[in-house]
Design a protein around this nucleic acid. Structure first.
Lengths: 246, 246
DNA sequence: CATGGTCATTTTGAATGCAAAACAAGTTCA
DNA sequence: TGAACTTGTTTTGCATTCAAAATGACCATG
């Protein structure tokens, strides 16, 4: 595991503008990096990771690291067992069953708000994203498809213009992304998803808020089923001792 | 301001079971107490409160206090300005306009879920709470009314049986509570709220999920309007320099 | 009188140090 | 053999310490 010294300032100008600007404080930076590591699965759920190890990895002392752990715990990404350190929370199918309906309700609201505010230009923009996504679908390029898919949902949230809504949704989506990272879709699920996206675009273009809300809610329900199927398939394939967790 | 030493353990058994069990760790305890202080308005929004002061108040060192600040910041209750300390976030009418629709969407979902699961006994329980609340309404006992009102909403969330949903709702409700604390209702708003609660109870008893969802969404919209009215009235009454904040 | 600048003080951000709790390995005893 | 106890080590929770940034007072300059 490569060491990454956060308070590096040797090159200074050598840092390309592309790298996400190191946040003002160390603990903020650590929160971001740890969150990424967790989402990307670099840290196994349920396994104890001593603070010292993480400190060494990030090149910071325990103080900012511990602050970061507290924040991530309040977000639900990790669990803090008193006197026993932190561990990444395992995402069970029960958790998925809880989270997707909430995301569905949030996206439904976003759909309604967005229909009331969206401009013609924004509709055109989403249409472009949509057909780009469809292209990736016809080419069976799953990662690219996922990326565009996510971008469309993000854009709808964004246009809704409710930052509280966006923040809450992002919190859930971040946790779920870990599951969706490993998820594989069946062909029928995939084509179903694309069909639903057609109707999403249509409802958006017609600015039919209630219809879009309903479609999104259903769409999230289907996503939930897809993720769970894939999760269970994986669990069965891997072994019997794996306990529906990722 | 009275000092409250958190790591007290002189009496041990002397602590009555009524006091909320001191949490395992100091920082957890501090998070809880600070949150309460903020919600109850003991800390003015926008005013800088040095860490040392808070430490002295709680009788802890800066380490657990700072950890608590980070957590509350991630919840949105306070803002952390780098190198400039923390301050309670002011709740603007714009924030209220953002939060209530989200709470509405969450409660609507809770309503649907609850209708699908609620037992006869639980309906009876909520009915009891409801009529107790109505009693306080007829007696014009606002604080007691508020308490029962809140309890009914909490109970619906709880029966929905989705802990993620409950947690997200609680996060928003906590922030809004600060506003509702100071909010006064007009008579017409109050009677409207009670009427709406009648329909809530009715939809629950009939287990009509979609109807309950719709009612709750509307109910929250009206609550939003009520809070804003009261907030604006207050702002006008107090002075012109107050900037829609509490 | 206002504006800008220097320096002491305060306050924050992060590192280090210390005590208590958990852990692990060996040891005793049934 | 195996369960319970002991002891040394590790790890966590918190306090303290140190350095950098911000604040504020004072002074100089236009």
């Amino acid at each position: 595991m490569e060491d990454v010294n956060l308070n590096q300032q040797p090159g200074e100008a050598a840092v390309p503008a592309a790298t996400p600007i190191p946040r003002a404080t160390l603990h903020d930076e650590v929160v971001g990096r740890l969150r990424d590591m967790i989402v990307e699965g670099a840290l196994e759920p349920g396994i104890r990771v001593p603070e010292r190890d993480l400190c060494a990895r990030f090149g910071v002392s325990r103080t900012p690291l511990r602050e970061a752990l507290k924040v991530l715990a309040s977000e639900g990404l990790i669990a803090l067992l008193p006197n026993r350190g932190a561990q990444v929370t395992a995402l069970t199918t029960a958790d998925i069953d809880e989270m997707f309906p909430v995301m569905g309700a949030l996206e439904a609201l976003a759909g309604e708000l967005t229909c009331a505010r969206i401009t013609d230009e924004e509709i055109a923009e989403i249409r472009a994203l949509h057909y780009q996504m469809v292209l990736h679908y016809t080419r069976r390029e799953l990662p690219e498809y996922f990326h565009l898919n996510q971008k469309i949902h993000e854009r709808i949230l964004e246009i809704a213009g409710n930052s509280t809504l966006t923040r809450m949704y992002a919190g859930l989506a971040g946790r779920v992304r870990r599951a969706r990272y490993v998820a594989n879709m069946t062909q029928s699920r995939w084509s179903q998803a694309v069909e639903e996206h057609e109707t999403i675009l249509d409802a958006l273009a017609q600015r039919d808020g209630p219809r879009l809300a309903h479609i999104l809610k259903m769409h999230l329900q289907n996503k939930c089923a897809t993720v769970k199927e894939s999760l269970e398939a994986e669990a069965n394939a891997v072994s019997a001792n794996s306990n529906d967790q990722i």
